[in-house]
Design a protein around this nucleic acid. Structure first.
Lengths: 222, 222, 222, 222
DNA sequence: AATGAATGAGATTTCATTCAT
DNA sequence: GATGAATGAAATCTCATTCAT
């Protein structure tokens, strides 16, 4: 039994390692240019071995997506304590995003891979049942926060929160998509981040109830 | 003489037809999945014939992009009279966009193809000289309008107009990208448009100087 | 009738013009890289028109070959008077060759095209009936000269004159082939000619009867 | 261990087999008509497999050339003992050539492929640094032998040995080229060989110092 | 007589996937 | 469990040739 457990552990470790290498490659060349050959080489395994762990390219990509989403959610949960105000939860969400994006690019991968696998998702996302578990969880979380902000009188009460969630996500998604397409060597995270931060602030200002003090939305220096 | 003119006309017509079919395919499957074989089949021509009109895939994509951008610009110019206020120019821009997007998807294609040909453009767009003529013209036009809105006291004077241009465009671009990836059969333009309209309104609200009446930005029913 | 004659004349002129352009191209890129498109463009005609004058690529190449051979023969005949000694005829042959090769490259084309059309010809040339008329004539002429040199006691009486003809021709052919493959821009006729001249002299020395004064074979400064 | 060695051996064997098949095809149709499809079919493999062993057509051709040259050189070295007189070394060179040419056509392939890859080489051969290692070695070897013959008073002291090397090689090259173009079924090695032998003898006679006994150059029956 | 337009057949190369060992 | 080897299917592009006008 100890043996079979160790086996299991090792197998999982290798699975992870493969996913990790694949992600690196996605960041470097984009999903569309990712080949199984690349993955194998980077993982220092044979192509055939990759197929032992993942039954196909699509499956591998899905796993990447799930894993990244899981990582993001865990991060988010670990930061978010209960009893936060809406605006603080939002800042928390943002910090989690920045942390992951700036450091490990998890978010980038989620969105890029997902848009590759499920073209056109974002617009149907909330209604659709085709979302993977983890991704749905992210969406739900975000929507809850936006609702809370409305309840707390910070966001315009007439704001369609489903739409607002989609907007925020597609904004992120787009940043990611664009960032992912910048050749790895000339990608500068600081300026991309600045751009996204500005964008996010403006969108929040757009969500705000009239008369709300805009300095509330100075997310960047939070 | 009549003959050679007719020839010219027919040749142009065929060129156009090919571009048209290619655009349809891009809308259906995305640029990355577009093959010359596809284009040929859809255009009911042989692959070799396609190469008669376009010397390569890249050239064809570039033409699509240029053509679409030209169409958009013409549309825009035909609507825009001189002496418009910033906000009206913005509405005009929007109307042009909606008209083209809702009916012929021109914009969608510009952005998708461009992002395929020049990965990562949007972040460097304004500074870069690598923009094609037509696309640059769109960018310049939009930036001028945003500047005007700042001058007229509608937009926050602290707004970075280069950034704002990038934001608007990447927002559009993203809508387009997403819309393009929805399988043609389940794509509903009305709801996509509504989504984009809302998004646009929110972004404008985000640009607004504090205290400006938000009803100004009810672009949709303009 | 005057009209139909003029027609005929014009038709021939055009035929010639096409062949001329094709030859230029062969010199520049080699037969194997010659395309009908190229020929048409260079001749400022449409591809279809080329097919009006020549029923196919092979036919066109054959014509080129015949024409060049005819030109060479004419040249040769115009120089060669009757009553020449063998060695003088040889020099004459050589002068004709140099003149044509150095100036118009006729010879080059004959050999290159022929080796493209009839692979392996040279070795079977003399026995074979598949030689075109003109080419056969060149061969016969050369063989006659070699025979004469033997008769006149300059060449080794044991020399197999058929073989010797083949040798000379394949030597020429090879020079041509090599010359034709040098990119047109870096081709220097003077040095190629020098090389060929030396080669020719050595071969003649090899043909010589023992004891014959070698200065006889200083063809180059003839 | 035994396994990985066997693998290595088999892999090399297959590599060789592919090269062998490619060479057969070159002999039959010439380099210019050689397609990867052909090679694959002849080797009873898929095209993709060929690309597993050779990263492209050019690489495959280069390998062929190198391999053939290596084979020739090895043969030459294995025959040539030290301390040979120039004329004996020449005969040795000749025997190596005949043996390889008559049996396996190695030489033929070297020259044909090389002239395809590096058009126009022969005239610049000796000066150029672009020669592959093996081919350069052949050239150097031959030139050394010719120099030795001059030193030993067999060849005309005024003979330009660089030129003479080029002459001999281009003579061989040409024989090869011609032979390669004879349809395989009608190619008769005996007569080709006889032709080349005669040619070689005559060229050597041409190189000879005046007064040298010609029977020295009866290479053929050596 | 001339040509613009079209094309079939084929060339090189790439990649996800399978399978025997 | 791991892998080297193999491959089918597809993508981009080229060229000799035909045909309606």
């Amino acid at each position: 039994m100890g043996i079979s457990e160790r086996r299991e552990r090792e197998k999982n470790a290798r699975r992870r390692a493969i996913l990790e290498r694949a992600k690196e490659l996605i960041l470097q060349k984009g999903v569309e240019r990712l080949t199984m050959e690349d993955v194998a080489q980077r993982a220092e395994l044979s192509k055939a071995t990759i197929y032992l762990y993942f039954s196909g390219k699509e499956v591998l990509l899905n796993e990447i997506c799930e894993e990244s989403a899981r990582t993001f959610l865990e991060h988010f949960k670990s930061i978010a304590e209960n009893g936060l105000t809406g605006i603080n939860a939002l800042k928390c969400f943002w910090r989690g995003y920045v942390k992951l994006f700036g450091h490990s690019n998890e978010m980038l991968i989620i969105f890029e891979v997902r848009s590759f696998l499920n073209p056109g998702q974002p617009f149907v996302l909330l209604e659709s049942e085709s979302n993977t578990e983890q991704v749905s969880a992210i969406l739900d979380t975000l929507k809850a926060i936006i609702d809370q902000c409305k309840d707390e009188g910070i966001f315009d009460p007439g704001l369609d929160s489903a739409m607002a969630t989609r907007l925020v996500l597609s904004m992120f998604s787009n940043s990611m998509y664009i960032a992912s397409r910048i050749p790895a060597e000339s990608r500068k995270f600081s300026s991309i981040l600045e751009e996204i931060t500005n964008t996010f602030r403006i969108v929040l200002q757009g969500f705000a109830k009239e008369g709300i003090d805009r300095s509330l939305f100075d997310i960047g220096n939070a």
